[in-house]
Design a protein around this nucleic acid. Structure first.
Lengths: 155, 155
DNA sequence: CAGATCTCAGCTATACTGAAATGC
DNA sequence: CGCATTTCAGTATAGCTGAGATCT
């Protein structure tokens, strides 16, 4: 993209896409260096902050698809970062719990992602970074990427 | 994503991705309603602003991959929005030129994308929208999504 | 010969859909 | 019965790679 047309430069949709592509690339590199993935962080962070939950609840919390959640929990359970047990109160459900090793991994991923965020936002002032985050939060709140029918929200 | 962990909320990489997903969805809807695609706009805008060019040059200008460029030019030529002719000065090349119908289509796509951009940035003030664009431009400039070796930049 | 261009075939990751099996 | 949950299989799209044919 040596010479970007003025029309394209002014398109927020286009610029968001480009910036997100850059972010994705950096995150994928950083996470795979730790044998992990973007979604590992999302899931572990959700479990730490809101406690154990069924897979269905986790899909609602994280926005990760139900279908991908299965493979994700498989993987994190293999790695010993979460525990998956049948829910005694509702035998359709699994209860997913973060382990001690999982909390440690979460801290590692958090550090790595923090550094990546700093790298990505390097051209911005601290004040601008904060503004950017607030603006993105507003945008996502109004135009959510997935509008699922929010079903049962018990943990 | 009913309850987003604070850690995730503060991750610019995550938020950018979410916002870009929303944007992608809106753009895909809007473009397909016109029988078009995001890349149609990029290519037509580049041709209008910088004039006829070889496919290789167009990949550099737009960031669209050489492989996808073939199908894109096929499609736009079928639709009568561009003309593809062998370059008499360099027989390896095709010269791609925008047609009158192509300019009309470009204006249609531009209007649609403008409306979509407004919808996406609705929660922001005009001042904030401008700031957001400037910040995204800086981010993309510093961390470009693709770092191709920039070869011959003749048109 | 090196290197550019166009094209085709195919790969990977991501987000998602459909449907079956089980249980509430 | 309707509905929720977990799981598996498969789809669509985007971005990208490799390689061959042609030409400078």
């Amino acid at each position: 993209m040596d010479s970007v047309p003025a029309q394209v430069k002014a398109m927020p949709t286009f610029l968001l896409n480009q910036a997100a592509l850059s972010a994705q690339r950096l995150v994928a590199e950083g996470m795979s260096a730790l044998g992990a993935h973007r979604t590992h962080f999302s899931l572990l962070a959700s479990l730490e902050e809101f406690g154990p939950a069924s897979q269905a609840t986790l899909t609602r919390r994280t926005g990760i698809d139900r279908s991908d959640m299965v493979a994700l929990v498989n993987r994190l359970a293999e790695d010993g970062f979460v525990q998956r047990e049948p829910d005694p109160e509702d035998r359709r459900r699994n209860v997913v719990t973060i382990t001690r090793a999982g909390r440690q991994q979460l801290r590692r991923l958090d550090r790595a992602l923090g550094a990546i965020g700093d790298e990505l936002l390097a051209p911005l002032t601290p004040r601008q970074r904060e503004e950017l985050l607030q603006m993105l939060i507003k945008i996502v709140a109004v135009s959510p990427p997935s509008a699922q029918p929010s079903g049962d929200e018990r943990s």
